[in-house]
Structure formats: structure tokens, C-alpha cells
Simulated scan of single mutants.
Amino acid sequence: MVKHPKPAWEHPIYTEEQINKVTVAHREAKTWSDYVALGMIRTLRTVMDLATGYKHDHAVSLGKKDPAAANQKYAMTERKYLIRNIFLESVAGVPGLVAGMLRHLHSMRRMKRDNGWIETLLEESYNERMHLLTFLKMASPGPFMRLMVLGAQGVFFNAMFISYLISPRTCHRFVGYLEEEAVLTYTREIADLDAGRLPQWEKMEAPQIAIDYWKMPEGKRTMRDLLLYIRADEAKHREVNHTLGNLDQKNDPNPYVSEYRDLTKPHPTKGIEYLQPTGWERKDII
């Protein structure tokens, strides 16, 4: 039997208490860069909803008048959620790769160190790919969805490439808002599962690739546990990108690989023990 190779990056161990504390959050736009990023994410959200048949707002609106009709017309099934997750993760893995690649090339051109940003960005992209590989163990998208993924990646990669050359800060804020949407989506999936609307997932076990990657303990390997772990990852990406968006893009060190003298005070880490939903402000960490 061939064993899976060890992951390039060891995933931090999350406690049950930590993953259950993750909440939906939104960082208010404050600058023109923030407003541009927020506008872009709202446009992308509309496209993703259309591509995956996700109409939560319509369902809520109709549900207030006729719950039965709303459930019949807009209800999300296990299959629909998996396809949406696959589409989401196939796009979410692009920004970290593009940003890491451009900073890598920039570092070589300047012949200077990158202050630790590159590895964190590539690790984020790797983590999103692991989400995708996990969901692909549970569902195989059809030809149309594969074509949608191909088109979305092609457009998104080139758009992110050009945008990061123009304004890295805007791109990190954009990803922060993207991850806010991801946390919201997984929170709704967990709520639907708890409400009994996803019966096929109630006793489903997480794939072995997920158990190995997140080091899921015995007795905590259900589909619900998996969604909690993935949501926690997205919450971490939300924090990381909002934090990076607050920094001087050329000169500030990456706070997620920096060493701190006083370890008793909250500070940025690779884990979620000090999770900051809207990111760390520059004045608090530099």
C-alpha cells in the first residue's frame, strides 16, 4: 500500500474550543483601497452564486412568507454544497500563489530578503489546495463545473497578477473580504447540518486525507468536524490578509514569522489561539 507523502507544511493543531469560537465577521471599509476591494468581492460573490446555484438571500426572503416554497425552490443539498465548496476552493488557492510568486521575483530583482512574507503566502495557497483535495474525495464535478473552474482560474489568476503589481495592499484586503465570505458559507453549512437539512452528512466521516492533514482526533472525524476545521482555516486566512493589508508592503516584516519577546501577550501566530477576525492593526504589532 502506497502512503501519502507528508505535507510540505505541518498544519497547526486546533483545539475543539478554538474551532468552535470562530465567528462571522466583517471589517468595515475605511480607505479607497478597501472600497475597491469590497466592490470586487461583491462582484465575485455574485458570479460564484450564479455558477453554483446558491441563492441564500432569496431563500431567506421567500422563507419569511412561504417556508415550504423556499425550501423546494432554493434548498441547498449536500451535492450542491460540495460543488460550491470545490468551486470556492479552486479559486481561493490562487491569490497566495500569485502574491508569493511575485514577491519571490521581486526579492530576486532587488537582491534583498522579503521579510518573511513569501512562505506564509505559499502556505496559505497550499492550505486552500488541501481543502479542494478533501472535497474532491467526496464529490466529482461534472464537465460543466470543470469548465467553469478552468475559466475562473484563468481569469482570476491574470486579474490577481496585474492587480498585485499595481496595489498589493488592495489585493490583501480583497482576499480578507473573500475569506469573510468563506467563513460565512461554511457557517451556513454547519447550521444547515445541525438543523437536519443535510441528512447524508450527519454520519459521514471525513476522508483519510483530512484526518491526516488536520490530525483529527478519534471521535472527532465527522463531516461537521471537518467543516469546523476548514472554517477555522478560512478565519485564519481572513485574519492574515487583513493584517498584511494593514502593513507597509515593502518594508514591514511578516508578523506571523516574527519572534516576540513577551509570549504571554496576544500576538500573531500560525495558529488560532489569538484569532483577530478583522486583522491586527499595524500599530499593535510593528
Rank of each mutant, 00 (worst) to 15 (best):
L62E: 14
P67R: 11
I41R: 15
E28F: 01
Y54V: 11
L38W: 09
H58I: 04
G53S: 09
D66R: 08
G39A: 06
D34E: 09
A51W: 09
V47W: 01
T43K: 08
T46K: 08
V36A: 14
H58N: 14
G39F: 02
M40T: 01
Y54D: 07
H56P: 03
K64M: 11
T31Q: 06
L62W: 09
G63V: 05
K65G: 00
L62V: 11
M48T: 12
T43L: 13
V47C: 03
M40Y: 00
S33R: 14
A29T: 13
K55E: 13
G53D: 05
G63E: 07
Y35C: 10
A51R: 12
M40L: 11
W32C: 08
T52W: 00
T46R: 11
A51T: 08
D57E: 15
V36M: 13
R45Y: 01
A37D: 02
M40R: 10
T52S: 15
D66W: 02
A59G: 11
K30A: 11
K30F: 00
K30E: 08
D49S: 12
L38G: 05
A37N: 01
T46V: 01
Y54W: 07
L38H: 09
S33M: 04
S61C: 12
L62I: 09
E28G: 06
L38C: 05
K65E: 06
G53R: 05
H56R: 15
T31F: 00
T43F: 07
T31C: 04
L44R: 07
R42V: 00
A37W: 00
S61Y: 12
A59P: 05
K64E: 10
L62Q: 12
G63S: 08
I41Y: 03
W32E: 07
R45G: 04
R42E: 08
W32K: 08
S33W: 00
D57Q: 15
M40Q: 08
R45E: 13
T52I: 01
H56M: 12
D57G: 08
M48G: 10
V36Q: 08
R45C: 04
D49P: 03
A68N: 10
D34F: 07
T46A: 13
K55P: 01
D66L: 06
R27I: 03
A68H: 03
